[in-house]
């Protein structure tokens, strides 16, 4: 793949929270257009931290970030990044802050400089796309957990990003909502990285599943076309089938 298909490159990224041990250590990652990556790893292995570094919410203590062929260092550099990369937070309550669904979904487009009418149209279309028509005037903090998650996704998609970073999108969702989410992600022509503990979910909608450990991404776990339907004894952790 040529360099014009390269979306982001992380090189030698290290990060530690003040006074704490290294969460990320010499981490490398490349994301190309069309990549659909699943990311697994134990709690505290730095998955969420990695997302926040890509979005510029945290600054690495060492290493370089290049997104769309531009080095990104300062807060200013990342303003542009956030227009193209959408992050779905782990907790939908963090993401939704407007009183009504419509206002929350329109928040992003309005920030991008769209007119009121354009923002309205985009928002309604996005809600429609996610099967949330009729939710416009619902009060965000009164939605159910699954609805909150889908509305959060709507707020991210309304910005028409090229890349999605989804942080445990299935946590707390029932089977039906999970299937909705799966369908939505399959229909979207986007590159994405998904953090999840559910290997079956990842196997269905990603091409590669990587694991995080020792502050790095371990690239040796390709998704093989292995069909096995069973309650997984290994749960969310790395394992091999021979």
């Amino acid at each position: 793949m040529g360099s014009n298909h390269l979306i982001l490159t992380l090189e030698d990224i290290s990060f530690n929270y003040s006074g704490g041990p290294k969460v990320l250590a010499d981490l490398d990652l490349q994301l190309f257009k069309g990549d659909r990556i699943g990311l697994m790893g134990p709690n505290g292995s730095g998955k969420t931290t990695l997302f926040q570094i890509i979005m510029g919410l945290l600054k690495p203590s060492y290493g370089s970030i290049e997104i769309y062929n531009t080095p990104r260092k300062t807060e200013k550099d990342f303003i542009d990044v956030r227009k193209k990369i959408g992050l779905l937070f782990q907790d939908a309550d963090d993401q939704l802050f407007s009183p009504t669904v419509l206002e929350d979904v329109a928040f992003g487009p309005l920030n991008l400089g769209k007119s009121r009418d354009e923002a309205l149209e985009i928002s309604l279309n996005t809600l429609n796309f996610l099967g949330l028509s009729g939710f416009e005037d619902r009060i965000t903090y009164k939605l159910s957990g699954g609805e909150k998650k889908l509305v959060s996704l709507a707020t991210v998609l309304a910005m028409e990003p090229e890349v999605l970073l989804l942080d445990e999108p299935t946590s707390g969702l029932d089977e039906k909502t999970k299937i909705t989410l799966k369908n939505v992600l399959t229909r979207l022509d986007l590159s994405y990285i998904i953090i999840s503990h559910e290997i079956d979910f990842l196997a269905d909608i990603t091409d590669h599943i990587y694991t995080m450990g020792n502050g790095k991404i371990l690239f040796d776990q390709e998704v093989h076309a292995h069909q096995h339907v069973h309650a997984h004894p290994h749960g969310a952790y790395v394992h091999e089938h021979k």
Binding site: M55, L57, Q95, F97, G108, N111, R116
Partner: peptide, 15 residues
């Protein structure tokens, strides 16, 4: 942070 990710620049627009 979530607001920053959605391009918040200190303005709230009304619909």
């Amino acid at each position: 942070n979530a607001m920053l990710c959605r391009g918040f620049k200190g303005d709230l627009y009304s619909l």
